[in-house]
Design a protein around this nucleic acid. Structure first.
Lengths: 293, 293
DNA sequence: TCCATTGCCTGACTTTAGTCAGATAACTAG
DNA sequence: CTAGTTATCTGACTAAAGTCAGGCAATGGA
């Protein structure tokens, strides 16, 4: 039942909020406002550009500037110019900044330790495994899938990764030229569409659809980054592409695949695709599927 | 490896902090400071005594008073006297207070919903199960075990529950008089000790140890509340009792149990206890165990 | 009955967090 | 070279969150 799931999530939120609250409270023990401690964390061992800090922490530039002044006054941080752009500046930890960060790290480690210590090793393992599962599935839920220009930088990044992976899995390689890396307006409205999946802004998957004729759409370029696999993302992508195909007027979707891509095949079959005869001359395809919408 | 567990926990904390932050942010959409929203939540459907509110939220009494004035001015809360003590006061939601709380509830439900929606039903179930596991194990880790007066109110509450449960599980009942509900200074230093386990202040288990002679200690009254079972609490309790036995000078601990209490037996055997001959005349015991410390 | 304690309230205060409007210097496209 | 843009900084401001000291009435134990 939906409702009991929601109740569980809310109960989880409550339980976890308390823990997190206690952790943040413990940071205050070093006599510095929380926002400064957070900033110290975010600058980190390798330092960070101010722009990046502002974005990651969602800070007003004036506010950030003032906090950096304060950390500089405490001798924890030094802010210097960046090589490539003399306007931009780069914050680094000083030696005592590193020590201070280490102290905060120790606090966080203690906190984590105190969560583990009372548990038996078996229970510790269960806790850690469950935490990993929660984190993983929360990340999966945070993935957004949006229509995007297939020529954008992020789209190209995904497509490159897709090609690289396919090439490595096909026994006799993959030649971009032969593999119909069609572009232009094939995958843009009104003839098609291109979807990009992002996690925290970073592309983690893509998929495309185009009309072959007024009633038939073809799905292509489905790819999910290895880190994002096993979270049902491919299925979400496929559903969204089918939705778009319907929207474009198609009554049927088809696609081709290669026997080396086993997960893909089982996904298609689970989603109601049926094997059909060869409908194109893609030299890298050896299975063809189709589904009525 | 310990370190990787700590790293996992810290990664989990980071991931979850963000989610929680987003949830709290959403509460601001009702144009009221977060602390007032929290107070509204804490007053809840049945209302709450001001003292309890102060304690649960960790508020200064002046601050609480002011916030209540503000919520009263908004027509959400009414604060009245308490029957038993005219100094103490009790906060209740008004009708529009209930409506406002419902609106906050809806926000939290939406947030939870948005976490579920992108996931397939199977993934939703996995997420919810993992959350339950995390919550459960975090609760287990939050249980504290402390030495306490065996005559305290909380101790008696636990002992009563223990007796009730044992009575219900023994086929021929359990008579307190016969069952040697020994008290007095048997379970206090220097002859013994009594341990109470608490979760969030509420007693969830107990255990006692006493010296039979200078070198032999007996463990008695081990009990864990049903809600707190399966978290390794009994094992922790047993270890603490053995530690105390050692501290009292014992070289051997012994205990008796009943064949109806199967989990107890398997715990003792797992912890290195060996069955020995009857060493007392407890009419409810039919197994006797002993372990060298 | 007295007096220390408890529970709450009020006023005055501080710190933290964050916003807004310029100012300045460096960069970039034309 | 110029005009517009970008990255940061400064000063002035506000709201939220929290602290502290004193006050008053009710309570409870001696």
């Amino acid at each position: 039942m939906e409702n009991s799931k929601i109740a569980r999530i809310r109960s989880f939120n409550r339980a976890v909020t308390r823990r997190v609250g206690a952790l943040e409270e413990s940071y205050l023990s070093r006599g510095r406002p929380l926002s400064e401690a957070r900033l110290l964390f975010e600058i980190g061992r390798q330092g960070a550009a101010l722009g990046a800090l502002r974005q990651r922490l969602g800070l007003d530039s004036g506010y950030l500037s003032r906090m950096l002044r304060s950390l500089e006054a405490q001798g924890l941080v030094s802010v210097g110019a960046q090589d490539d752009d003399a306007r931009a500046r780069y914050a680094k930890l000083t030696e005592s900044g590193h020590a201070e960060l280490a102290a905060y790290d120790a606090l966080a480690d203690d906190q984590a330790q105190s969560l583990l210590m009372p548990l038996s090793p078996a229970a510790q393992d269960r806790l850690v495994a469950a935490m990993a599962e929660v984190e993983r599935l929360m990340a999966a839920a945070a993935v957004t899938i949006v229509e995007e220009d297939p020529d954008s930088a992020d789209a190209n990044q995904c497509l490159d990764l897709y090609v690289t992976e396919v090439a490595s899995r096909f026994t006799d390689g993959f030649d971009t030229a032969k593999g119909s890396t069609a572009s232009g307006d094939e995958f843009t409205r009104p003839r098609g569409a291109f979807l990009l999946a992002r996690l925290d802004g970073n592309p983690v998957g893509c998929g495309a659809v185009r009309l072959l004729d007024a009633r038939t759409a073809e799905i292509k370029r489905m790819w999910v980054s290895p880190q994002a696999r096993g979270m049902g993302l491919a299925m979400r992508m496929l559903h969204r592409l089918e939705e778009i195909a319907r929207d474009l007027g198609a009554h049927t979707v088809c696609l081709d695949t290669n026997r080396a891509l086993t997960e893909a095949q089982s996904l298609y079959e689970r989603q109601g695709y049926e094997e059909v005869a060869r409908f194109n001359d893609n030299p890298y395809a050896d299975r063809w599927y189709s589904k009525r919408l």
